[in-house]
Design a protein around this nucleic acid. Structure first.
Lengths: 200, 200
DNA sequence: ACCTGAACACCGTTCAAGT
DNA sequence: ACCTGAACACCGTTCAAGT
């Protein structure tokens, strides 16, 4: 059993987050529990409540890291002038790939319902907004002078669409064989939408 | 306490399902529990396991009813010749409206993860397939002679897309104000996709 | 000061025992 | 035959008590 001052509060937080991430990554988020995390880091449950408000708080912090990882992958290769269409297809591809490689943590971001009392902190919402921003910037070159709100709407429609395909695929609702056909579906969604949006 | 032969097995099943549906409808599915359902119908938990295999089995049966209700609403007004585009927009509208009026039961269908051991029965998968079929039939008139698989893919892309917008909206991820803007987003997704798909 | 460990109010699931 | 009720192995959360 770890004893006092073995680790700082920050260290315990970090250890708990990593242990929790590992459990979710490997076993899915319904397998996550405060007791399991505590055991994994050699402390008792009580200690967890010293560094996290509650389980939702722990989950929120795991989700934040997942969003960071996803965002990093989406911004890995920057848009090239004159290749806006390819860039958006690439974004969709990266999104699907991430969901496929890390399905449990990805699912936790979008499926965990936080207790209704809980207000999602601004810094967290910012992480979501940042992802829309990436898509929005990707669309901009194709929107030539159209009002901001039309661009925003297009970004939302596209991201929502890709997200939905992703979910239906991961829950086997689409009756789709493998990742490849999901990638194809996403291509179909994005390129047809863009054809409609840009009008050709 | 209800005693033997007060109700047939079928009656208990029906009572349990209704009580469970009520709990989910009103309080959300994280509030559902075997003990609550049992208490609501005047039996003990043990009895529930006489008529359902386990909680997943109960949930699957609630979900089946939700899918029936959704399907009924989607097929309420049949497609009119020459109005294929309007029909598809209408389908999207009905889908969003349903999710908005019955968010908890709708969410349970798409968010509950059944235990991995559990194989989803064919009659249930059929209920999902039936919904794709509706969308597919809606697209057909616009696809004039294109191969079946392209129509199937378009149906999946559209349904996935509408579904994704719906989820992001209900989880407040889209930062969308109300139902109206969700309906607008859906319109945007469907009509732009169709413009691209039909090529004009 | 830091952490434990036991308590409380819940879960899903099983099954011997009662009527 | 039908249903109960208690048990088992879990939860999240709190907090007096120990070191």
């Amino acid at each position: 059993m770890a004893r006092r001052s073995d680790h700082s509060r920050e260290e315990i937080r970090e250890m708990a987050l990593s242990a929790a991430e590992k459990i979710v990554f490997e076993q899915g988020y319904e397998k996550l529990s405060a007791r399991k995390v505590a055991t994994a880091i050699g402390y008792t449950v009580g200690t967890l409540y010293l560094v996290f408000e509650n389980i939702d708080d722990l989950i929120l912090n795991i989700n934040a890291r997942t969003l960071d990882r996803l965002h990093a992958q989406m911004t890995e290769s920057p848009p090239k002038p004159g290749k806006a269409r390819e860039y958006l297809l690439q974004l969709g591809h990266v999104y699907i790939r991430y969901a496929n490689e890390d399905p449990h943590r990805w699912a936790m971001v979008f499926e965990h319902r936080f207790a209704e009392e809980r207000t999602i902190p601004a810094w967290y919402q910012e992480k979501i907004a940042r992802m829309f921003a990436v898509v929005e910037e990707g669309i901009e070159p194709l929107a030539m002078g159209r009002p901001r709100e039309e661009i925003t709407q297009a970004a939302r429609a596209i991201w929502g669409g890709v997200h939905g395909i992703c979910i239906l695929a991961l829950t086997d609702t689409l009756g789709v064989a493998g990742v490849d056909s999901v990638q194809e579906l996403t291509r179909s969604l994005i390129s047809n939408y863009l054809k409609g949006f840009t009008g050709n």
